[in-house]
Every structure is written in C-alpha cells, then in structure tokens.
Amino acid sequence: MVDAAAPPPPDDRDALAGELALGLLTGPERAQALRLQLADPGFADLVAAWERRLAPLHLDFAGQVAPPEAWTAISMRLDGEGQADGLVRRLKLWRGGAILSGAIAASLAFILLFRAPAPPPTATPQIVQVPAPPAQMAVAQMTGQGSDMLVAARYDATTAQLNLRAENVPQGDLAPELWLIPADGKPRSLGLISANGTTRLAVPRALRIMLDDGVTMAITMEPAASAPHAAPSSAPVAVGKITIL
C-alpha cells in the first residue's frame, strides 16, 4: 500500500511510477498514485520517464478498422460545441475541458428546492477583510434534459459544507463528478458525489469564493479511480446555476 503520510523511498517511487505508467494499479493504490502525480512534479517526471521508455511498444498494437459511424459520432460531439443558441452558449463556458454533446445538452432549468433559513442576526456592520462568499446559503438544482436526473445542491457558508442529493443518475461504469464553473469558464472539480442519495462535501477555501450567484454547477460522468480530475472529459449530464438566498 502507498502511504500518503510517508513518502516512499526513491527506488519505491520509481517503481510506483513504472507501475502507474504500465497500468498495473487499481482502486485506492491507483487513485493515490494519480494524486501523487498531480501533486508532486518530481514523481510526475518519473512517470513521464516511464511513459517514454514504454512508448515504442505502442507501435506493436495491431490496427482494427474503426466502425464507420465512429467519425459521425465524434463529429456530432464537436458540433455540439459549435452551436450558439442561448442554452448552449452558456455551456460553451466549458472551454479547455469538455465538449458539449448536442445529444445530451443538459438544460439549465433551475428549481428552488431549499428554503433559506432566517438569516442570523448581525448586530453591527462588519468589516470584511478577505473576499467571502456573499451569502450564508446558496442553492443550485442541476437537471438533465430528457432524463429524470436531478441533483440538488445546498451550500452553507458557515460550515463551508456542500450538501447534495442525487436522483436518477445514469447507471454505468462511471461516477458523477461535480464541477463549479465560474465566470472564467474553467471547470473546477468539487469531487465525486454519490450516484444516489446524499453527499456532503467540504468546499476547499480557494473554491468558496467562486460560489456566487449565477455561477454554473454541472455533473459529468467520470472514471472514479482517477477523480478528482483537472478537467471534465465528457459533456455534462446535468447543469444548473447557483442562486444565493
């Protein structure tokens, strides 16, 4: 097992890099090695060196003619990106990341599910020294179009906790990953959520400030083992916007 608290000695690090590059690891070991690759440039270099060593083997894979409809499907996914109607334009915020699939262009419908609690009494005007979330409570309802998928999110600024409730998430090999897409259009992962039922996530400090009115939240289906990801790899299955209460 890889222990995050005690970095492996140099030889073990190189062995781990080789194991990751070769694809031998699974489950928590793989997830941990992938996290190390993201967090530790030295380890990332070791992995890259192993990828370079093994690269010539790729030439030995035998080719197979791809099915003729494959290009059509790819082309349609790229078309989704090119559309410019109102809903899709918002989703074009997914620059540098996912391509929107026209087929599952998720709706931006917003339904208020949670009622705001009474605001806590604040006696006197306070001096805010650091940028803070502009309200105590924010909600978002992410819905999928043409599916019953529903993910309701409620953020409580006093605890920096995001509570989510998911229903009717597509079943399959992939897991739902939650993204925050602020005005710069770059999706930030908030991590995986439970495909059914509730999830409670602690929102990292750097992302709290981005939880603002009108900011987009979205769900994509991603490989669980390598989450959280730097960018989504597929189109969102559900999208909604944050409303500050």
Partner: peptide, 23 residues
C-alpha cells in the same frame, strides 16, 4: 514525442481508465 506514440498513449490511457472504472 513521436506523434503516433503520443496519440497511442492517449488511447491506451483512455482504455485503461475505462477498464479500471468498469471494474
């Protein structure tokens, strides 16, 4: 990097991601 091995590595990694995620 050689362009073909760069592309092959994307394909192999994507397939391995799929396989690991599918269990």
């Amino acid at each position: 990097a050689s362009p073909i091995t760069w592309l092959c590595a994307i394909a192999r990694n994507a397939a391995i991601d799929w396989q690991r995620a599918s269990g």
